[in-house]
Design a protein around this nucleic acid. Structure first.
Lengths: 226, 226
DNA sequence: TAGATGCTTCGATTACCATCGAACTATGAA
DNA sequence: TTCATAGTTCGATGGTAATCGAAGCATCTA
């Protein structure tokens, strides 16, 4: 009974958890590399490569080669629209099957997204830094302000070291739990590292949960609630 | 990495060919029984039952019990929207992978949909009968007009025999190739049977293609082009 | 040049799920 | 009641696809 526009083929492409996670990550609007997408999806680079090949063949994502990286973006507004609609349905459905495992709230609160802070606290960090005028974001992305550069030095982050890497300093990353942005990029990662170093937080073993100490959470609030 | 609104879960539900065919059939807007959906999807009733249970659990379709039938409808406008967007993407993809097997154009032109005529000629039939005021359709469905009842008798169709079956006389069926309606229901099926009997057309062996003879196609055009 | 990193291909394994036959329940018709 | 039809559940089977380890290619850096 293979007939008609293969809606099943397209839906099946979006219907794999790993691929769906990749696509959700790409909803941020910025191009991501294959490796980043692999980590976002929680699979090995090989597996991710296979998935990306399928998505590319299905014209869901578009690759753009740059140096030894391959950056992927969603291949069109219709893909974005489809994902948004599906998110809406999934949320509707999700409300009814309230199976909040014990870890779930913690994951929503603070977790690692690749190597930076995500969850409610990640969003709070992004917003706090924006309010304090340490970062500013426009259509092209996010960047440190002059005040932000000063702040980074005071906070113990070596920006020059970060800049020597090819990875962008600041990047916006869409948060699934809050549907808002949190801070990614090497600066975002450095901030989380610094939180670890300062003893504000520890990373949960064998999970992506980030656990803040009481004192650490207080200091964090000072940082973002200014 | 199960996190976030389970867009994958929803997409996977739409990503099975059998389920996608059922949902496409339901895009016509009318409620269909489990058996009808099974035939539409080309699977056995058992398999269909399993699929429908999943779709129901996922809140994609809503069942309504009536007598010993279970009528299914799409559970909301968001589902319709999702299917439409996916159809659009699938069409776009289809354009680029132009693997039009030799049978493809013929399938688009005239084919069997379960037991009635679909494809361009199916759409032409629906429109022709409407223009001649033999059928009329509104939100509730399609029905024969008084003139249509007369016409049926003259054309050699025993309406009383059809009415004795529980199956609806006229039904609208959405056409994937033309995105328009063609005529289903027992009357639609009877028309196609009559075309066979009159020698206007033959059904292709082992395929769903309907092949009109030259003379048959001429007569058909007289019928619908009035 | 050598070494590191990003990404892919290949091959083997595993797990899931669609499918259908058979048997069962429920509703309606005679 | 008895028979037919609509629909389901159960169990077994098969095929497909996701996954990862290992190895390869490509690109950048030193």
């Amino acid at each position: 009974m293979k007939e008609g526009p293969d809606i099943a083929r397209v839906a099946a492409l979006l219907g794999d958890p790993a691929r769906a996670n990749m696509l959700t990550a790409l909803m941020g609007g910025r191009a991501l590399t294959a490796t980043e997408l692999a980590q976002e999806a929680g699979v090995t680079p090989q597996t991710a490569s296979s998935h990306l090949a399928k998505l590319e063949a299905g014209m869901i994502v578009t690759p753009r080669k740059q140096g030894r990286h391959r950056y992927f973006t969603l291949s069109g507004p219709d893909i974005v629209e489809a994902l948004e609609v599906l998110m809406g349905i999934a949320n509707r459905v999700g409300h009814n099957r309230v199976r909040t495992g014990p870890k779930d709230p913690e994951l929503r609160h603070a977790r690692v997204c690749y190597d930076h802070l995500a969850g409610d606290m990640g969003v709070a960090l992004f917003e706090g830094l924006t309010k304090r005028n340490l970062i500013e974001s426009d259509l092209n992305g996010v960047a440190l302000t002059a005040a932000g550069i000063t702040f980074a030095g005071e906070f113990g982050i070596d920006l020059d070291a970060l800049r020597s890497k090819r990875r962008p300093l600041c990047r916006e990353c869409l948060d699934w739990s809050a549907r808002q942005s949190h801070l990614a990029g090497s600066f975002g990662a450095a901030l989380l590292d610094r939180f670890y170093d300062l003893g504000w937080a520890r990373r949960g073993v064998e999970s992506r949960i980030v656990r803040f100490s009481r004192e650490g959470e207080r200091q964090f609030r000072d940082l973002v609630n200014f």
